[in-house]
């Protein structure tokens, strides 16, 4: 009944036995115990469950766990480098990019996916990149500002390194 699934989660190889009907969000939250990604609508409309598969944002409620065989999955728990927060997380903190925090893990991962493809997005492109994520608190303005700020910080960091 259960099948063995091998995949990478936040850089760590995992081998787990899962039922075919288990969704990726259920595997991550209920079986592995990472509760960053949230179950909001459970229908691919709210983005609270957003994780990255091979660097691209997906709704993890709409993926069967067995579908990530051999793939690399990132959740919000993998964003920080040890105690050092990711620039996106720092910007969300500094710029007030969250209130209740329920949508934040999904917002951060959607933003990460956007910045992977487009390191210097315009406000319009950020809005477009977040179109799959709902927030019921802040009205989005500070979230969008935070992502814009994070992109600037990352550009500066990248500049310093090179």
């Amino acid at each position: 009944m259960k099948k063995i699934l091998s995949f990478t989660l936040n850089g760590q190889p995992y081998e787990v036995a899962v039922k075919p009907k288990t969704t990726l969000i259920e595997l991550i939250r209920d079986e592995i115990g990472l509760t960053g990604p949230k179950i909001g609508c459970n229908a691919g409309a709210c983005g609270a469950c957003t994780v990255l598969i091979d660097g691209k944002a997906v709704d993890s409620c709409s993926v069967l766990a067995l579908q990530v065989e051999g793939h690399s999955v990132e959740t919000v728990e993998g964003l920080a480098d040890g105690d050092k927060l990711h620039p996106l997380q720092e910007a969300f903190l500094d710029d007030g990019g969250y209130q209740c925090g329920f949508c934040t893990p999904g917002m951060l991962m959607a933003a990460k996916s956007l910045l992977n493809e487009n390191p210097d997005p315009s406000i319009h492109e950020i809005r477009h990149g977040l179109s799959g994520n709902l927030c019921r608190c802040t009205g989005y303005v500070r979230i969008i500002d935070s992502i814009h700020d994070a992109a600037q910080r990352m550009k500066k960091e990248g500049g310093e390194k090179s």
Binding site: G44, G47, T50, I53, K56, A57, V58, D59, S62, V63, A110, S113, L114, H128, G129, S131, G132, N133
Partner: peptide, 9 residues
Amino acid sequence: VGSPQIRNL
């Protein structure tokens, strides 16, 4: 179609 998350899937 949909959102970035949906278009990626």
